[in-house]
């Protein structure tokens, strides 16, 4: 039932949630220049203490991406508490790129009429909120990953009516929570203020298992992620029918540009869902995939998994 006048799903690369060194960041954005993605969100999302180590890379990366024909936005921090974080958030509206709002603090300094994007860490669960954000100037909204397909369908349709592109979490460890406490520092017995940047040791976050060895979560500084990598590999047709405009691919280590190409090939029908999945299993950290938030009984569920009873140890 796809309306032929509408453009098909495209790809958006989200901000890198992890703490990578400057050279890795540089190589990452250079490789994206030739990847089949329409736009890229750049900037520090998780921890303001990390930014000085890689912020010199941002201007060059933006220039490279713009020259390659990508749209680029700059993200706000996910949780703004400190004075310098407030200043940095307010300063985002002076940059000549759209701001991706991932904490509503960014709206307080954004002039009325200046268009902005909304990231997946803003609670857009319903029509009233989407309508309010559209009126305030939102032109793109990436929905919270927790939303089921029913909600996605309602919101994508409303987005089309209002001229707001609605995006869905397409690939990546899920951003499940953000805290004032740094779990990486806690695991290393450091205080947050003297964390020694131990989150940099784990390029995809640090895995957390249950006492029975079930793969469960991953900590990334103050952020808690799923250990599984969410993937919409099996949901492309459903999301396209729902009117979703774009899939968000969240950075991970390895050949990320090739992962982007995998999704582009899947959308274009050059490969099947199963072909994409068998490729992804070898690429994602830990090899575990999920799509249960969009279509399943719980977030960690995977469409291709055996029946729930066998999947969930202990039951």
């Amino acid at each position: 039932m796809t309306d032929l006048d509408l453009p098909d799903l495209d790809l958006t690369v989200g901000p890198n949630p992890f703490f990578w060194d400057a050279a890795t960041v540089r190589g990452f954005y250079q490789s994206l220049a030739s990847a089949p993605v329409a736009r890229v969100v750049i900037g520090e999302l998780v921890c303001s203490k990390r930014l000085p180590f890689w912020q010199d890379e941002i201007a060059g990366a933006v220039e490279t991406l713009l020259a390659a024909g990508k749209s680029v936005a700059v993200t706000s921090l996910a949780l703004v508490t400190l004075k310098r974080e407030r200043k940095a958030t307010a300063a985002l509206s002076d940059i000549s790129l759209p701001v991706e709002v991932n904490d509503l603090t960014a709206l307080q300094s954004l002039p009325a009429g200046q268009p902005f994007w909304v990231g997946p860490l803003i609670n857009v669960y319903n029509e009233g909120t989407l309508r309010w954000l559209a009126k305030r100037g939102a032109t793109r909204i990436c929905l919270p990953p927790e939303l089921p397909l029913d909600s996605i369908t309602v919101l994508a349709r409303l987005g089309r009516d209002l001229g707001v592109a609605v995006e869905v979490w397409g690939h990546g460890r899920l951003p499940l929570a953000i805290s004032g406490r740094c779990y990486h520092a806690r695991l290393h017995d450091h205080a947050k203020d003297s964390c020694q940047f131990v989150c940099g040791l784990d390029p995809d976050g640090r895995d957390v298992e249950t006492l029975d060895g079930q793969k469960f979560l991953a900590v990334n500084g103050v952020q808690t992620l799923s250990q599984s990598t969410a993937s919409m590999a099996y949901q492309i047709e459903a999301l396209r029918d729902a009117g979703v405009a774009s899939l968000r691919l969240s950075p991970q280590s390895g050949d990320f540009a090739a992962i982007c190409k995998g999704y582009a090939d899947r959308i274009a029908g050059r490969i099947t869902a199963m072909e994409l999945v068998s490729y992804l299993v070898g690429q994602v950290p830990g090899g575990q995939l999920s799509d249960g938030f969009v279509k399943g009984p719980f977030g960690a569920h995977w469409s291709a998994a055996p029946p729930a009873k066998a999947l969930r140890p202990g039951l």
Binding site: Y125, E146, A177, T224, F298, G299, A300
Partner: peptide
């Protein structure tokens, strides 16, 4: 709550039911 409230979907990741929804 250890996490920023209203910004946590740990519960629905494991059970399908969350504080927000």
């Amino acid at each position: 709550c250890v996490m920023a409230e209203g910004r946590c979907s740990l519960s629905s990741y494991a059970t399908g039911k969350s504080p927000n929804m």
